[in-house]
Amino acid sequence: MDNKTFLIAGIIIALLIGVVAVFMASGDPDGLESTSLIVQGQKTLTGGTPANAEIHEDTTGKFAYQSPMPDYSLGERFGPLGGVIGIVVGVLLAFVIVIGISKVLVTKKKAKEAQTNQ
C-alpha cells in the first residue's frame, strides 16, 4: 500500500468511525464524570446513572470558556446532522494540523541538513 492509499484509507476509516459514533456511542457519563456524580451523591459506585443526573460544576473563581461546538454538536436545532458535521470537522482538523506541523518540522530539518552539508 503506497503512502497516498494509506492516507486516504486511513482518513476514510477514521471518518466512518466518527460518524457511526454519533449514532451509536453510549450516552452514559465517562469514568471521570461518573466519579464526580458519586462524589456529588447522585450515583452509587456500582449502580446505574439516574436519567436526571447532572454534574454540578462550581465555576466560581475558575476559568470559563464557551466553545463553538460544545459536545460535538451544533445544538438541538441541527440534531444528529450537527453531530456528524462536528465530528467530520474535528477528524479532518486533527489530521490537517498534524500533517501541517509535521511537514514544517521535516522541511526545517531538511533545510538544516542542506546547510550543514554545504
Partner: peptide, 23 residues
C-alpha cells in the same frame, strides 16, 4: 502520524458502555 491522530480523534468520540452506568 496523521492517520493515527485522525483515528484517535474519531475513536475518542466513540463511547462504549462498561456497565455501572458508565462508558
Amino acid at each position: 502520524i496523521a492517520v493515527v491522530a485522525a483515528g484517535i480523534f474519531a475513536l475518542q468520540s466513540f463511547n462504549l458502555p462498561v456497565s455501572m452506568g458508565t462508558s
